[in-house]
Amino acid sequence: MIRLENVHQVYPTRSGDRVVLNDISFDLDRGEKVGILGRNGAGKSTLIRLVSGAERPTAGKVTRNMSVSWPLAFGGAFQNSLTGLDNVRFISRIYNQRTEHNIDFVYDFTELGSYLREPVRNYSSGMRARLAFAISMIIEFDCYLIDEITAVGDAKFYEKCEEELFGKRKDRAMLIISHDLEYVRLHCQRFAVLHEGDLVFYPNFDEAHEAHLRNLHIGEG
């Protein structure tokens, strides 16, 4: 289980401190899939970072009793001057995994062939996305953090990702952020809306959706 207790996150800005998360508490149980909606800048990615442990909250507590992935399909951990294979080797070493086995999987899954021996900086954004997703799949986690994954690759690759993530790993917990509301509706059982620092859970998708739409159009009427 992952438990957030009274988590506050404050960032200093030029115009004073900005409260991004205000006293947030919730539990994510094993196998549970939670979708979070919110407008741009609402703090969704901050929330993901805190859950992943890459960043510590200003106040409050995050407890993890299961292993948590890095935000999926996030290519930032690549070293651009290294080849795709170098990046696979690096991740394999960090997580104490069998490198050869992982390289085979990445060849197979990404279908990038000899490009894997080229520096990542020469990749197109679609190729990067393929590599990033494949690398995310070589380490098994109890909980996956999914930050806007729908931008990944072409239709065929999208299908492969769906199978890998929601087919083979349907027993895992997931925290999903996406502006693709249909994607969130399809894959999650619990829904929450993040707005002005507050995280509110709704009993079903439709109510969450409605609240989200209201937030999007605040100030227009």
Partner: peptide, 9 residues
């Protein structure tokens, strides 16, 4: 910085 997503690093 992005390596900090790997919690052992």
């Amino acid at each position: 910085l992005s390596l900090m997503y790997h919690r052992n690093v």
